[in-house]
């Protein structure tokens, strides 16, 4: 189980699955791969919330290039579990981020670091698309 602040930068899942019809998205937590959902349920540019076995929540996103990312769903600035409902963006020269729907702070999806306040960081999970 990865401690929130010590989470390694996750590498996103490789681009589009061989067979989108049957592919499933999975997330690594507590040393095990947990099923998230079927691939077609993800909309490019948006996220979904996932309830993890230990009661925590994750936010899983699919970006424009069909890469998948997962971070903690809790917005550390408000405590609300809403990051999965934020919009994806990308800064010039940087990777994708999610903007909190509440107060709009942005979090880098690869590292979990808050782009508006680098002292704040959210957990990151490894994800994969399994055929």
């Amino acid at each position: 189980m990865t401690a929130p602040t010590a989470a390694p930068a996750a590498s996103p899942a490789a681009a589009s699955p061989a067979d989108p019809g049957t592919a499933r998205v999975e997330l690594l937590t507590g040393g095990a791969w947990v099923p998230v959902c079927d691939w077609p349920l993800l909309t490019p540019g948006r996220g979904v919330a996932v309830l993890l076995p230990d009661g925590r929540q994750a936010a899983v996103f699919r970006d424009r290039r069909d890469r998948v990312w997962a971070v903690g769903n809790r917005d550390p600035f408000t405590g609300a579990h809403v990051l999965s409902r934020g919009l994806l963006g990308s800064a010039a020269g940087g990777g994708p981020y999610v903007a909190s729907p509440l107060l709009k702070q942005r979090f880098d999806l690869a590292t979990g670091v808050c782009l508006d306040d680098p002292s704040v960081r959210i957990p990151v999970h490894a994800v994969r698309v399994a055929d």
Partner: peptide, 22 residues
């Protein structure tokens, strides 16, 4: 996506866009 790639700033083309322009 099409607007961004055609009319966006050079450095932003091909990217995700952002929470303002979307």
């Amino acid at each position: 996506a099409e607007l961004l790639d055609r009319y966006g700033r050079e450095e932003a083309r091909g990217g995700e866009g952002c929470e303002v322009c979307k």
